Amino acid sequence: MPRFAANLSMLYNEHDFLDRFAAAARDGFKAVEYLFPYAFEAHTLAQRLSDYGLEQVLFNAPPGNWDGGERGLACLPGREEEFREGLLRALDYAGVLGCPRVHVMAGLIPAGAERSALRATYLANLAWAAEQAAPRSVNVLIEPINTRDIPGFFLNRQAEAHAIVAEVGAPNLLVQMDLYHLQIVEGDVTMALRKYLPTGKVGHLQIAGVPMRHEPDLGELNHDYLFSVIDELGFKGWIGCEYRPKGGTSEGLGWLRQNAKPTA
C-alpha cells in the first residue's frame, strides 16, 4: 500500500501550524511535508516531529519573495548568490529535521527573457545544489507545475524535467511528480507513472483531486486505480497529500480510511 504524508501547508488549516503535527498524527499519518519551515526554528519543528512520531519527508528551499509573487530562483540569471544562500539554509534545516528531500522551485519566466539563458542558469544551479546536498544525504527535487495555478512557471512537463535530470547527471537530483499538475498539463497519468517510476528518477509523488484541488476522491482522476498502479510498479517513496480540503481535514479522509493506510 502506498505511504501517505500529510501536507501541513494545505491540510489541517483549522489548526495553528504547530498544532497540525498532532492533528496529522491523530489521523494516523506517520510523515509530513509542507512548503516552508523558515518561520520557525528548526529545533522547534524537530521537537514536534519527535513528540508525535512523525517523519519529515519534504519541504521547499527558499523561493525568493513568496509574498511578492516569486515562485523560485533556480532559473533566474543574476539571482545565483541568493539561490545558493537559500539552498544552504534549506540543507541546514534538513539536517536538523532529518529530511532527505528538498524541493527547489524553478521560478517564473521574466518578461522578455531568453529561455536558453534561463535553462543554462537552471542547470548550473541544480548541479551546484546537488553537489552541496550529496554529502548530507539529501536529494534535490524539481517539479513540473501547471501554468494555470502558477502562470509563467518555467518547468511544466515531465519529459523536460527528466531530460534536465539526465543532463545534470547527479544521482541525487530527482523529479517530484505531482499527479494533479500532470493531469492538468498532460493527462495520461497512468502511462506517465509506467514510464517514469521504473527509471528510479522519481523521488516523490503528490496528489490532489482535479480540477479543484480538493480531496483525491473528488474530481476526474481515479486515485484508487492509480494507487494500485503505483503499488504494482514498486514505488517505495512517499505520496504527499497536497490538497485543499473541501471541509474539515479529518472529515475528508474517508478516501484514505477506505482505500489505503497512512502508515508504511
Results as ranks from 00 to 15, higher is better:
residue 186 E to G: 08
residue 194 R to E: 12
residue 29 F to L: 01
residue 150 I to V: 15
residue 45 L to D: 01
residue 247 G to E: 13
residue 93 Y to R: 09
residue 48 R to K: 15
residue 96 V to F: 07
residue 24 A to Y: 02
residue 101 R to N: 13
residue 234 G to R: 03
residue 92 D to A: 15
residue 209 G to E: 04
residue 45 L to H: 04
residue 56 Q to V: 02
residue 257 R to H: 14
residue 158 Q to C: 12
residue 136 R to P: 01
residue 169 G to M: 03
residue 234 G to A: 07
residue 25 A to S: 15
residue 8 L to F: 06
residue 215 E to T: 04
residue 34 Y to Q: 04
residue 69 G to T: 06
residue 262 P to V: 00
residue 197 L to K: 02
residue 6 A to I: 00
residue 31 A to V: 00
residue 30 K to A: 14
residue 156 N to K: 14
residue 178 D to K: 03
residue 175 V to T: 14
residue 99 C to I: 01
residue 93 Y to N: 03
residue 230 I to V: 15
residue 142 I to P: 00
residue 31 A to E: 06
residue 71 R to V: 11
residue 71 R to L: 08
residue 196 Y to C: 07
residue 21 F to C: 01
residue 161 A to N: 06
residue 150 I to F: 10
residue 134 A to N: 07
residue 256 L to C: 02
residue 201 K to S: 05
residue 61 A to R: 04
residue 70 E to T: 04
residue 44 T to S: 15
residue 137 S to C: 13
residue 226 L to H: 03
residue 242 E to H: 05
residue 99 C to G: 05
residue 83 F to S: 00
residue 5 A to M: 06
residue 116 S to E: 14
residue 168 V to E: 05
residue 212 M to N: 14
residue 37 P to S: 13
residue 200 G to C: 08
residue 262 P to S: 03
residue 181 H to S: 10
residue 2 P to E: 08
residue 260 A to P: 00
residue 10 M to A: 09
residue 220 E to M: 00
residue 228 S to G: 10
residue 153 F to W: 10
residue 230 I to T: 06
residue 96 V to G: 03
residue 193 L to Y: 11
residue 43 H to F: 10
residue 44 T to C: 07
residue 68 G to C: 10
residue 222 N to F: 10
residue 109 I to H: 07
residue 60 N to T: 05
residue 203 G to S: 09
residue 141 L to N: 00
residue 221 L to T: 02
residue 92 D to C: 09
residue 85 E to V: 14
residue 9 S to C: 09
residue 22 A to G: 10
residue 3 R to Q: 14
residue 3 R to E: 08
residue 6 A to M: 02
residue 229 V to Q: 05
residue 155 L to I: 11
residue 159 A to Y: 05
residue 192 A to I: 00
residue 23 A to C: 12
residue 90 A to D: 05
residue 107 G to V: 00
residue 210 V to M: 06
residue 16 D to V: 11
residue 5 A to Q: 01
residue 8 L to V: 02
residue 148 R to Q: 12
residue 181 H to T: 01
residue 17 F to R: 05
residue 233 L to W: 02
residue 181 H to K: 10
residue 191 M to L: 13
residue 203 G to T: 03
residue 39 A to L: 13
residue 150 I to R: 08
residue 127 A to G: 14
residue 252 G to M: 08
residue 31 A to K: 01
residue 161 A to G: 15
residue 198 P to W: 12
residue 55 E to I: 10
residue 231 D to Y: 07
residue 262 P to A: 07
residue 123 L to T: 03
residue 72 G to M: 02
residue 50 S to I: 08
residue 185 V to D: 12
residue 6 A to G: 08
residue 106 A to R: 00
residue 95 G to P: 00
residue 145 I to Q: 12
residue 117 A to M: 09
residue 229 V to Y: 02
residue 167 E to N: 08
residue 67 D to V: 09
residue 20 R to T: 10
residue 74 A to T: 01
residue 49 L to S: 06
residue 135 P to C: 13
residue 95 G to A: 08
residue 16 D to K: 12
residue 211 P to M: 09
residue 65 N to K: 12
residue 150 I to Y: 07
residue 63 P to V: 13
residue 169 G to N: 04
residue 115 R to V: 13
residue 191 M to C: 11
